[in-house]
Nucleic acid binder design. Sequence first.
DNA 1: CAGTGGTCTAGACCACTGC
DNA 2: CAGTGGTCTAGACCACTGC
Lengths: 231, 231
Amino acid sequence: MGPRYQLVSDALKQAIESGQIQPGRSIPAERQLAEDFGVSRVTVRRAVDDLVDEGLLLRRQGSGTFVRARVEKQFAKLSSFTEDMIARGRTPSSKWISRSTGTVTPSEALSLGLSPGSDVLRFVRARYADGESMALERSTIASFALPDIEQVGDSLYVALEASGHRPVRALQKLRAVLFDKATADLLGVHVGMPGLLIERRGFLADGRAVEMTESWYRGDSYDFVAELVEG
Amino acid sequence: MGPRYQLVSDALKQAIESGQIQPGRSIPAERQLAEDFGVSRVTVRRAVDDLVDEGLLLRRQGSGTFVRARVEKQFAKLSSFTEDMIARGRTPSSKWISRSTGTVTPSEALSLGLSPGSDVLRFVRARYADGESMALERSTIASFALPDIEQVGDSLYVALEASGHRPVRALQKLRAVLFDKATADLLGVHVGMPGLLIERRGFLADGRAVEMTESWYRGDSYDFVAELVEG
DNA sequence: CAGTGGTCTAGACCACTGC
DNA sequence: CAGTGGTCTAGACCACTGC
């Protein structure tokens, strides 16, 4: 049995998502919820805090707490290609092009915060959605994060999760490029087609970098969506 | 005088940023801080919560609360082109290409959540950094958000701020495109150059959409950076 | 002025860490 | 087992809203 605020926020969430409380309408007052659920008002606030953070609710002092007119789902989530495609209703697949072990290059060492000479694993693969080529990915993983290269199946993130080193935060940099011949050939597209180059570094909760990935996405078939918040 | 938790979090933040507490070291225990600041432990937790949310501190149950090894600054901030360029140490400038008033198109109405027939303001401008062309921007603003089109100076966001309608949240969609002739000519680049097309909708705190902007960025001179968090 | 969210207290017990 | 963060209570007063 989890904490009580979790029970309260789950119940509220369910009431909102099932449409029992319509967007724009207010949820019961905090004191009322405390009584209804038999918890203190502090616990209710903690539960409501979570839903406000999620963007599901909006507080107005003196007025009430309202179900937010849904803008969009969460887009700034850290998800893998596999999860991303499934969320879009497409069927993802991958083809390994190479997997190898090696020693960090100077730029990888800098990027991953590893000492020179550290071991890394390298993965190159093509990504498909519904059988159509979508992207080429080159990943470098610090070896401490993946004890055995053989245990990596289709999803790198699943393997990282299994070893307890799935990144919880990532920094992405993205720019428009033209595909060069080598990359275009691997994806079966024309040279000179516009593409997105995404450079990503993934970090553990303790701040260590574990993953560095360069992805070349086809510009004609991939949209990148992000939700931004005031800073 | 603001809330007490603010005083506590400001004091902690200052101690961290001034280097009095080194990255990786722990801050005093919550009960100790409560005594030091003469507040309750709940108030201390609220203050620490804020710094944990900011990524400055990391809690470890049973162990302590530690100053985080700084990964990166905040990147998912909602900032205008002007602010963005200044942050990068470049000098932004703009040239108005057109400003006009009109009636929403059906797709704008859908995007901005306006009734058919509503008035909107339209802005087209070229953006420069250090005199070099960077982007072409076409913005559509709901008329309720900007009472007077004449009062818009160089920055649309400054004008929106002045009228109390600056977006606090935005949804961006981004993809790679090739510049068409009209856009390439306005930016002084070659047709067929790769570019980023960013479609943005900006929302007020109450969820209303006020802004819809399409920006064509030169792919060779603009990087888009985003910080993602686990969803 | 009744009702709502915003802040705060003093104290309690639990779960986990690290010796 | 001492110390730490995690959760929770009952109650209080303040600031703001909307009539």
